[in-house]
Nucleic acid binder design. Structure first.
Lengths: 355, 355
DNA sequence: CTGAAAGCGCTAACAG
DNA sequence: CTGTTAGCGCTTTCAG
């Protein structure tokens, strides 16, 4: 006893499957009396439309996927949660998967079951290049998250990292700091996040006439607390002690903060610390963390609305026909680059306790 | 140009779909030469098996679902990440969804697209009762996470929360504390987590001959930092100042910690704080947090191995026939209750800085 | 307004 | 070893 099919319901109600289908899908052209009978049969048999069959035939599952490098990681966690909720507004169910930044897994999720079953995908790529993603975007409507330079190839939403990093650095400069370190350089990653943030950082220094010291730009392998702590320790032990540090993520900042405290430094008096992401831990730690807050809700909302626009076009399913000779009438709309808002949130780690 | 089907490949290779299917599924009985030809056609046409069709026909998608109340929330985030990785060992792709503890959404995910498309489900229910879940477990193999009393109805893995809470409380008592508060009572929730932890807490107090003071047992509406901070403030302002507090989650503890610090208390001297979950924030905060560490990797591994056992039984797909008259030979194995390990991790929030 | 029937892409009897 | 074919459950065209 696994589930009743349309046929079962049709037999019970004494109608054809067509009519049952019409009722299930709320099509108007059904006589009230017929509809009633069908609905009763539906109820009695506990009918649930088979998602696989629907998908095969209609090419729509009502599912959208979110593919991110790490689910644990407060930033992506918060974003995922917001996307799940935003998706409900569109009548979609959002499913999340994790790549760990592994290129093979990024490809697998795109090509395999999740990518095929889903009506559209929101993805934050770390390893696969925009050009390669572009090819898959023919198969699944795709919206990218993050700063990688998709160069107009794919729909894409992110904050202006260059400007945000410049603001954060400017805030530190405004506090009178001069030896400002940057933690979070990641030359090996395909996504341009770190690249853009270091650019903004340097811009702000230059604008203030502060010479740029490469020894203060710390690379990391990942954006976690441990990496931030390690970088801070190196800075402190290397004799390059800064009087402020701008970290490319809150997790890095939290790690750096802990390392500085362990080192006997007072924050913010000896060292001002600024992060990026505005995760919850930063708000409740001691001292609380000054940070760049991307408009996460806005990012979620705009990513999905962007996806919704793509999905207005014909579904990829059933009646589809792949005929290279006959180009599909109207060209797809050009890729969009959406810039989400951000703001600098000043807290204790740069200005101390109020009162 | 959406994708080549088996038929397309068959035509190109000059064989039947059967043979192509055999090659794709790595069946041995294919002549080497034929196999080669087919493989080439596969390659040229960039063939990807259609997941929907496969699922419809074979009743297997290779996907498993994880349904949790909140994706943001470090504990579930870490668990989700571990489950994603463990699933790869089994050749499954794990998809995560969030319910916010909403009963309707819990049901929806079980009945609708995600629940139907997936081969099995790992779920941490908050609102739907075990009895109701039991009914759905006929449709999807289901493994529960957390403490709710499934009473032998459904496979189920969790730590021994009573014992763990007693250990944590015992640690506080061993430190010489006597006015030990508990933060995290949740009488309204269907999952028995809070209930079990308060039970362990009281057990430990009783064992130490410490009278139990209801004014020290603080209810919360959610397990977040803000709730922990609020409860702590009430405790402090209500004149019931404790000398120690056991919080039912690390997030609560982190919130309580911040509130205590804001209040001018020294931790652990004036107030010792212990949490539950061992999330990363607790390890890197100042002071670092003493906590009960559930063996998350073990939970993930055992949940999936449990699911794997269920999946050895016939798939729910295609050839299935629902005939109430003919009971399916062998009864399903009885529900299992798996207890995962935990240990108390002592850090600064109860014993101060070492050295 | 409703029925009959084709077929989405795949797997797996059932032949040969 | 390989070909033919019957569906899985659904949507949808085409007729009434």
């Amino acid at each position: 006893m696994v589930g009743a099919s349309l046929k079962d319901v049709a037999m019970r109600a004494g109608v054809s499957v067509r009519t049952v289908s019409n009722v299930v899908n709320d099509f108007p052209q059904v006589a009230p009396e017929t509809r009633r009978r069908v609905q009763q049969a539906l109820e009695e048999l506990q009918y649930r439309p088979n998602a696989a069959a629907r998908l095969l035939r209609a090419g729509r599952s009502g599912l959208v996927g979110l593919v991110i490098p790490e689910i644990d990681s407060p930033y992506f966690g918060e974003l995922a949660s917001l996307l799940v909720q935003a998706a409900q507004q569109y009548g979609w169910t959002l499913l999340v998967d994790q790549t760990n930044g592994d290129p093979d897994r990024e490809r697998l999720l795109l090509d395999g079951p999740p990518g095929q079953i889903v009506d559209g995908l929101v993805m934050s790529p770390w390893a696969v290049s925009p050009a390669e993603l572009r090819r898959r975007a023919d198969a699944v409507p795709l919206v990218l998250l993050g700063e990688q330079d998709a160069a107009g190839l794919i729909d894409h939403v992110s904050v202006d990292s260059v400007a945000a990093a410049a603001e954060a650095t400017g805030h530190l400069i405004g506090l009178g700091r001069r030896r400002i370190a940057a933690i979070g350089v990641q030359p090996h990653l395909a996504n341009g996040t770190a690249q853009q943030r270091i650019t903004g950082y340097r811009q702000a220094l230059r604008a203030a006439g502060i010479p740029h010291d490469p020894a203060l730009e710390m690379p990391v392998t990942a954006l976690h607390r441990a990496d931030g702590a390690r970088a801070m320790r190196e800075l402190l032990e290397g004799g390059h002690a800064p009087d402020a540090v701008f970290c490319f993520s809150d997790q890095l900042a939290l790690g750096a903060l802990r390392a500085a405290l362990d080192h006997g430094l007072a924050v913010p008096d000896d060292l001002a610390v600024c992060g990026f992401d505005d995760i919850e831990d930063g708000r409740y730690g001691t001292p609380s963390l000054t940070t760049v807050a991307p408009d996460k809700a806005g990012i979620a909302e705009r990513a999905l609305s962007c996806l919704a626009d793509r999905l207005k076009r014909p579904p990829t399913g059933a009646g589809r026909r792949r005929d290279p000779e006959v180009p599909s009438g109207d060209a797809p709309p050009p890729a969009r680059r959406i810039v989400a808002a951000h703001r600098l949130v000043v807290r204790e780690s740069t200005v101390g306790r109020p009162g």
